[in-house]
Amino acid sequence: MNLFRLDASILPGTSASAEIADIAEAEWVAAHPGATVTRRHLGTDALPADAWTLATTAAFAAEADRTEAQRDALALGATLAEEVQNADAAILAVPLYNYGISQHFKVWVDLVIAGAGPTTPLLKGTPTVLATTLGGGYGPGAPRAGWDHSTPYLERILADIWEAELTTIKRELTLAAATPGMESLRDVAKEQHAEALAAAREAGRALAER
């Protein structure tokens, strides 16, 4: 058995998304002692920003005409795609940054697609947990309702293109406890925190049973 775990927080020591993912992972590992966990942390080990460009342009060049950098980028894309495709279960911890996904996560997605093809269902039938966290509030009635341009994209890639059996755990208001002006939201934030951790335990157990 092989669990693929991806993190994208740039602050791993205090990551709210990692907290959720850690709980789900612990449930899976407890049910599969000795199993393999393949890890990739984009926040602490970012992929080269130009790799996708190199991999994409290489696809339009004859093999003999490709530069060493293009060949390396193609190989990297293939490796990343293989990590995803080989998973029996997957957990992705991806926070929202600046109302969308971060550039380092987008590079990863683009390289995986470059390595596997744009329509390959890499996670077809694979139980997958997406832990995503947002510093503010983006739900109905919030001043910035509709500004979450991350979660729909993540679900489109994971569930619709890669065909994962996806469970999304979404926690908002992660900055409320420490941000001036958000004091009135702290009780709601605590509730959402507790709900997210409970959902992580449930999702992890369900992941382990598959």
Rank of each mutant, 00 (worst) to 15 (best):
N2F: 11
R5Q: 12
L11N: 14
G13P: 03
I20M: 04
A21F: 01
T36R: 15
R39D: 10
R40V: 05
D50N: 05
W52D: 09
T57Q: 12
A58F: 00
A61K: 13
A61C: 01
E63Y: 02
E63T: 14
D65C: 08
E68C: 11
Q70P: 01
D72N: 11
A73V: 01
A75E: 02
G77F: 01
G77L: 00
L80K: 02
E82P: 07
E83W: 11
A87G: 02
D88G: 02
I91A: 05
L92V: 00
A93D: 08
V94R: 05
V94S: 06
L96I: 14
Y97S: 02
N98C: 12
N98Q: 03
Y99H: 13
Y99Q: 06
Y99A: 13
F105G: 03
K106P: 07
V107R: 09
I113M: 14
G115R: 08
A116H: 06
G117H: 12
G117Q: 10
T119P: 12
P121Q: 07
K124P: 12
G125D: 09
T126M: 14
T126P: 14
P127I: 01
T128M: 04
L130P: 00
A131P: 08
L134N: 13
G135F: 00
G135T: 13
G136W: 07
Y138E: 09
P143M: 10
A145S: 12
Y153I: 10
I157S: 07
A159N: 11
A159M: 12
D160L: 13
I161A: 07
A164H: 06
E165T: 14
E165G: 09
E165S: 14
K170D: 00
E172C: 07
A176V: 06
A177F: 12
T179H: 00
G181S: 07
M182D: 07
E183G: 08
A189S: 03
E191Y: 11
E195Q: 13
A196R: 00
E202Y: 11
A203K: 06
G204D: 02
R210M: 03
